[in-house]
Amino acid sequence: MKSAVIIFPASNCDRDAQTALKQLTGKDPHMVWHQDSALPDVDLVVLPGGFSYGDYLRCGAMASQSSVMKAVKAHAEKGGAVVGICNGFQVLTETHMLPGALMRNADLKFVCRPVKLTVEETQSAFTRKYAKGQEISIPVAHGEGNYFADDETLNRLEGENRVAFRYAQGDNPNGSARNIAGILNEKRNVLGLMPHPERVVDPLLGGEDGKALFQSLIETLS
């Protein structure tokens, strides 16, 4: 699997993503600057966590206008895989590649801790190596992860089995609607999630529950 990680000004999980991808694929991912207008030939694009453009205006709003995002959009339209983690998820909603929006956490606090998630959907390139209903622990680190969409959109996401991950009952860290932690687009080749799977791919870092996400992609895209 060939991959690329996009770097926006103030991305801060780009190197975590790079390390995870290198460790699991055995290949260095391409690191792509936000001003580039073309992507290298890759199977997977990762939009990493961070505070792109200082979260000016709204989280992900400025990044959604960057020239590289046009290329990322085109990559997804051709069926290429894209995963947006944390700020990357915010960028995906701001570019309308995923529905809804990520609002300020309901209790206004930045939350940085491992959360329990359930894997809701395994029919996707991102989640096939998990078991349906599996409970996993992955850290979150965000102030704006409160997923919001109107009821019609939420019903549609659930009806089309596009909720990939939910916060486990009683462990919703941000007030997200219907405990949503991660969603898929209609074509199921774009995933956005607030938790950080790239931070838990090695027991040294406290867990390996994020590994299956990358392994799913490797199995599907290699």
Binding site: L57, T93, P99, A101
Partner: peptide, 8 residues
């Protein structure tokens, strides 16, 4: 296009 996120 930019100033507001009309979803919210």
């Amino acid at each position: 296009k930019l100033l507001a996120n009309t979803v919210i």
